[in-house]
Design a protein around this nucleic acid. Structure first.
Length: 202
DNA sequence: TGCCAGGCCCTCTTTAGGGCCTT
């Protein structure tokens, strides 16, 4: 499998803006089905973390006070990713923040995002639900640390991605699981993907 | 101190509504 960059943001809210920014990012690079490199950092964008989100992520306002500036972290993360194709769990969320934070640096994304949630809905329709943590437990994938911290969630998404790639290869005979194929699959209606998988055999 | 969104997908749909998923 080609190189893929799996990313996850922790933020202080759901939609980027002047009061809602990224607070932590993690990136892991997958190559030939293995995790080959990683980047992780808290970042200080000068925003306040509400108490409910602090409880959710474990990232406190105190922790952000000593974190490096957001511009420095996002430059490092963007340089780390380069033009590598991206993947995230519920990528529409991380894509918003990636594009917003890069935009503030005058930079622009050039690669597509694949989404492990959209793919899991198509490839694992019988899962109890398609939350990242649920899928990881349900599939018996390795524990990666405290949920809702960026690196732990990124590694969970990476393990999920490798599991889905394995399903496509072993159960459905897909010779090469490319990022382009993942992006195509996630755009197709679930019923159409199910029919395509069924025709390839289980 | 703490406000807050939006794309996807199903169906009791398509001139819409609501749940899922991310923090």
């Amino acid at each position: 499998m080609e190189r893929i960059a799996v990313i996850d943001f922790e933020t202080n809210g759901l939609a980027p803006g002047s009061h809602c920014r990224a607070t932590e990012i993690a990136v892991v690079l997958l190559e030939n089905g293995r995790l080959v490199d990683r980047y992780q950092s808290l970042m200080n964008a000068g925003v306040w973390i509400p108490s409910d989100i602090e409880r959710l992520t474990g990232i406190s306002n105190r922790m952000l006070k000593t974190a490096p500036p957001v511009a420095q972290v996002m430059r490092e993360a963007a340089d780390f990713v380069g033009s590598t194709p991206l993947l995230a769990h519920n990528a529409s969320f991380d894509k918003k923040f990636w594009d917003y934070e890069l935009g503030l640096l005058g930079r622009q994304r050039t690669q597509d995002f694949a989404c492990s949630m959209l793919l899991a809905r198509r490839l694992l329709p019988h899962a109890p639900n398609h939350k990242l943590g649920t899928l990881n437990s349900w599939l018996g994938l390795p524990a990666t640390g405290r949920a809702h911290r960026a690196l732990a969630d990124t590694e969970m998404a990476a393990n999920l991605m490798l599991h889905l790639a394995g399903l496509l290869q072993r159960q459905h005979g897909v010779a090469e699981v490319s990022h382009g194929l993942l992006c195509q699959l996630q755009k197709q209606p679930a019923a159409k993907v199910a029919a395509w998988l069924s025709a390839r055999g289980h």
